[in-house]
Design a protein around this nucleic acid. Structure first.
Length: 600
RNA sequence: GGCGCUGUAGCUCAAUUGGUUAGAGUCCCGGACUGUCGAUCCGGAGGUUGCGGGUUCGAGUCCCGUCAGCGUCGCCA
């Protein structure tokens, strides 16, 4: 080793010792006759002193140092003079007096320095990720990530799970997203698909008798990005045999309790709260609600059906819904202009036709442009249903179930932040359970699987598969943390008759099912145990545990919204020779502009 | 693919209703300084306001197009 210690470990205990440190020049304070440098590495910062008492030569040498130079210093540890310790540093009680300096490497003037007060723009950070990763915040987040994964693995190891790696080059699986494809050189015209999840493989492992499997699995989905979505991401993939929903949920309950305790010092009460899907949609309009605050949805469709306001009345009579939320105390803060913003949001984003509102005045009366269409009794009824008090703002959407859910969910989410209805540092864990087996496809009679086609229906719903498939509930469960879906899983079908029936409902005939994943169907016939599992989104868990709102900050090398890597400039063109090997020809009009050539 | 926000010095930002030579801090370069820790002080350099077009006597500012980053809807079972 070139060093004897790190920059984070020297303390008052080491006074008098001689040591060697290596690191990056973090800040320079040059007084002419004495120079201080904070030397930084992954472990911390140590103040090193260059002065003429120890070695005049070295003081001159120190004059050459600039930001982010990599240096090696030999010297002696001594306590700092009285009153000059730095409480911000773990090493702040001591300083390192340099007797010998070696510049290991110089550094070009960097576009930004890790310690600068204002965080640089994200494009710059991504382009020079090696500089960005030197920032303390990034370091902390990636260290947290490492500890989270270790804790997950330790927990699983303690519960007899076996860690198995599954292929990255596979074939298209029955997930719903677009695949990333890899052309085959040997089988020209054929493609591997990168896994959207190791779903099939882990089920095969159950059939093979490896009754508790985990993997920290990289997954790929070629869909558009969001603040909490990357095209490649990491899951803790888990599968168990001889279990039902409660067993998997209970296992993850324990894991969350351990994670919260070890990483956040929080004591989670088990079992974690559970909400059915129907309840979540009815009360919060979403299957991953943020349960750190209330502002629940109130349904007034029955009241609307008899009122004098045409829009409400006709909506109710059409079998649609009139629902709303009470934004407590929001009235003084929400001008007409801000209400218009909310209105535009639900119109533009979800196709709602409008947003009705009532303001509860000081005298307790309800004010609204549409109040005149309601009788005194109806207004009083409205007020009591929403529990409206002076200063409250009621926001209502009259539309389909779907639009009212989406619109009110987004209003609730936004106003929860704007009205500071919860402590952002608070953590809330819950389960959403009993998802529907199926949802309607667009303008077709056909059903789509809400999860994947191997999801088992609840035992008590088996009869409904034939009679009323839409009401069938699945053995499916999502882990929700602070309003984010942190994971989801199901118990799988291990009975070929039920599987056949589900395929039928999905419009998959036996032939095409056999074609797409016959190997799994075959395997299921060779002694498949009852099994099920879950996948936890590790990037999101890290994001939530770190209190961040952006998944890119939890990933060492993330991609931009266009799935572009600004540092390596991937994706990029390849040699014609490579394409020839693969039997691929690219038509001229399909080649998009080279991002590098158009950026400046 | 749609909608929205942003784009000004290496970096972070400012620039009144469209109006003189586009400013500040920081970084960088030169100088001073033996106790700082966002060191301080003096001096200097640094700009085709993302790119292209238009309106105007005059555009960083308004309009159109385009590129990039971000947010969001669709999409992601």
């Amino acid at each position: 080793m070139l060093r004897t210690h790190t920059c984070g470990e020297l303390t008052i205990e080491n006074v008098g010792d001689t040591a060697t440190l290596c690191g990056w020049v973090d800040t320079i304070r040059d007084f002419g006759g004495v120079t201080f440098i904070d030397l930084r590495d992954r472990y911390g910062r140590t103040q090193v002193v260059f002065n003429p008492d120890s070695n005049p030569q070295v003081l001159t040498e120190a004059g050459k140092l600039k930001n982010e130079y990599v240096i090696k210093v030999v010297g002696q540890i001594r306590p700092r003079p009285d009153g000059q310790s730095n409480k911000k540093l773990a090493t702040g009680e001591i300083e390192f007096v340099v007797s010998d300096l070696e510049i290991l490497n110089e550094c070009k003037t960097p576009p930004f320095v890790p310690g600068q007060k204002d965080v640089p723009g994200e494009d710059l950070r991504l382009k020079h990720r090696y500089l960005d990763l030197r920032r303390e915040k990034m370091l902390q987040t990636l260290q947290l990530r490492s500890r989270i994964i270790k804790t997950m693995r330790d927990y699983c190891a303690d519960h007899d799970f076996i860690d198995i790696e599954t292929p990255i080059l596979g074939r298209s699986t029955p997930e719903g997203a677009r695949d990333y494809l890899v052309p085959s050189r040997v089988f020209k015209g054929k493609f591997y698909a990168l896994p959207q999840s190791p779903q099939i493989y882990k089920q095969i492992m159950m059939i093979a008798g490896y009754d508790r499997y985990i993997q920290v699995a990289r997954c790929f989905r070629d869909e558009d990005l969001r603040a909490d979505r990357q095209p490649e991401f990491t899951q803790l993939d888990l599968e168990m045999s001889f279990v039902d929903s409660d067993d998997v949920i209970g296992m993850i309950d324990g894991m969350m309790q351990r994670l919260a305790k070890e990483l956040l010092g929080l004591d989670l009460q088990l079992p974690l709260q559970r909400l059915t899907y129907d309840e979540a949609m009815t009360r919060f309009g979403h299957d991953a609600p943020d349960l750190r605050f209330g502002m629940e949805i109130v349904d007034i469709t029955d009241l609307a059906s008899t009122c004098g306001f045409g829009v409400f009345k006709s909506t109710a009579e059409a079998g649609k819904f009139v629902r709303g939320v009470n934004a407590k105390g929001a009235a003084p803060k929400y001008s007409r202009k801000r209400i218009d913003e909310l209105t535009n949001m639900v119109k533009d984003d979800f196709g709602a036709k409008g947003l009705a509102w009532f303001r509860c005045e000081e005298d307790g009366s309800l004010f609204s442009p549409i109040a005149k269409f309601f009788t005194e009794e109806e207004l009083a009824d409205l007020k009591s249903r929403f529990d409206a008090e002076p200063g409250d703002l009621l926001l209502l959407i009259a539309d389909t179930w779907d639009i009212s859910c989406k619109g009110l969910y987004s209003i609730r989410k936004r106003m929860g932040v704007e009205l500071e209805l919860y402590d952002p540092k608070e953590m809330h864990f819950s389960w959403i359970v009993e998802f529907p087996m199926f949802e309607r496809g667009d303008e077709t009679e056909r059903w789509n699987a809400m999860h994947h086609p191997f999801t088992a229906p609840r035992d008590q719903d088996l009869d409904q598969l034939d009679s009323d498939a839409g009401t069938t509930r699945a053995k499916a469960y999502d882990l929700v943390i602070n309003g984010y879906e942190a994971g989801g899983g199901t118990i799988r079908i291990h009975d070929s008759e039920i599987q056949k029936k589900v395929f039928g409902l999905l419009g998959l005939d036996e032939e095409s099912a056999q074609e797409r994943f016959g190997f799994l169907l075959d395997a299921l016939k060779y002694g498949a145990p009852p099994h099920g599992g879950i996948a936890l989104g590790i990037d999101r868990v890290v994001m939530l545990f770190a209190g961040l709102d952006n998944i890119r900050d939890c990933i060492a090398f993330p991609k931009t919204q266009k799935a572009y890597d600004m540092m390596t400039e991937a994706p990029n063109v390849v040699e014609d020779l490579q394409l020839n090997d693969l039997g691929i020809e690219i038509s001229e009009n399909e080649i998009s502009d080279d991002p590098e050539s158009i950026s400046e």
